[in-house]
Amino acid sequence: MSTLVLIELNSDQVSANTRAAVTAAKLLSNKVDALILTNNSNYAKSVSSIDGIDTVKLITDDSLEHVSSEVASKLVSDVMDGYQYLVAGSSTFSKNILPRVGALLDVQPISDVCEIKSSNTFVRPLYAGNIMATVESIDPTIILTVRSTSFEHAPDGGSAPIEQLTVDIPKSNSSFVEIQESKSERPELTTAERIVSGGRGLGSKENFELIEKLADKLSAAVGASRAAVDAGFISNDYQVGQTGKVVAPKIYIAVGISGAIQHLAGMKDSQVIVAINNDPDAPMCRMADLVWQVDLFEAIDDMLKH
């Protein structure tokens, strides 16, 4: 039994959710290989040093820098021959590719796995995480994406051999135009130990900068509700929730966020939740550890002065 992990790289860095995928893969089988699709073969080094990987399979081509779902799914499904599992961390990268691999291999993939019960039985969330379902796959090949917050992140410590695969890169009917990446010096949202998250209550983009200031003071990452992103206070990649990112930091400070089920879906497993809100009936206040019923601007001011 062997497992292939599809690696997600952020330039030369292995993504945190990929490290979670490696941990999950090791629970499933003794042999875990990694597959990298990249334009730069140097990136394979950071993957080969992840603890627990047997062989790194590398496909390199200039066109793979911003690979399409169409091309990636074809390449992955061709490499899958002989593997029983395909695993990746839950992210927009894997969700773009793995379902299409499933279609090509006639397999029903399982998204957002939170727990592995046995070789074919898994727990995954439904209804914005309000329901957890235990599901059993009867497919001969099993395809999973796993939640980064549910599995340890495999550390460095390995030195797996790197095997270059020579394959034909299929033609794509879609092409890359550009990417607007949001760059930040702050801790990454999905792995941060502390998050300060702002909602509609902030009122404007200018006011939202207070959230950033507070985050810097606390060495925290910045998060946001959908309403804050929709209103243009901050870009989409900061959204926490059912349709945004799922986080589980030590401290989650929700400032001016009401706590709709879709938002709670993304942060309810945080260790300590702090609600800063002037409405004591907001759902966020009912599910927080610490509740500060106050005008949020007053609270931020007090914290920044502290």
């Binding site: 397999v107 029903q108 399982i110 039985t121 969330p125 439904l126 995480g129 309000n130 329901i131 957890m132 379902a133 235990t134 599901v135 059993e136 796959s137 009867i138 497919d139 709670l264 309810k268 497993d269 939740i273 206040c285 009912r286 599910m287 927080a288 550890d289 610490l290 509740v291 500060w292 019923q293 106050v294 609270a299 007090d302 914290m303 002065k305 502290h306």
Partner: peptide, 23 residues
């Protein structure tokens, strides 16, 4: 291809909702 063996309401952790009043 994927059978649902069971479902469970996940509920959320019981939290104290302790009131605080300053930084």
């Amino acid at each position: 291809r994927v059978k649902v063996l069971g479902v469970e309401e996940s509920g959320s952790k019981d939290r104290a909702a302790k009131q605080i009043n300053s930084a």
